[in-house]
Amino acid sequence: MIAKVIFDMIKAKNIMTRDVITISKDSTIMEAVKLMVSKSVSGLVVVERNKPIAIVSENDIIKGIVSKKTNVQDVMDNEFMIVSPLTTFSEINKSLKEKKIKRFPVVENDKLIGLITETDIIEATRDFTRFHQIVQEAILAIFGFATAFFLFYFSPVGASVFG
């Protein structure tokens, strides 16, 4: 229950990467590769008039090289899900696990403002597991102290101390 509340507090805008590297669908695979290597990212968003239309990942590039394609257009794939900045973390995590979608472009007012990758989700899972653990421990401590005080207050010794 606490997990649900905490996981719903996390929105897409909190975990996304803001510098999205984009490419047009008419570029060649080599351009895509150079862009990937120079920006050290593992995937590019293919945009048309500032709208994401596909994703190119390292895997797509390798498939392209193996089958001797030259254009980004021939290798890009449509396995992505557009999310809004306010989409909750649990929803994104669910799509990652069930539909095997690995990249989530974040779009606000028809503009691409960020990208959520698997790495972002892993890091977020770690951070929030840690945070959740702290919340849980705090609740346990409060309960513990309250119970101890309660016990003492109503015990005969406590009664003689507090009157």
Binding site: V33, K34, M36, V37, S42, S57, E58, N59, I61, I65
Partner: peptide
């Protein structure tokens, strides 16, 4: 995949 893209392509 990263090794591949980095070395082979660049």
């Amino acid at each position: 995949e990263l090794d591949f893209v980095r070395n082979l392509a660049s």
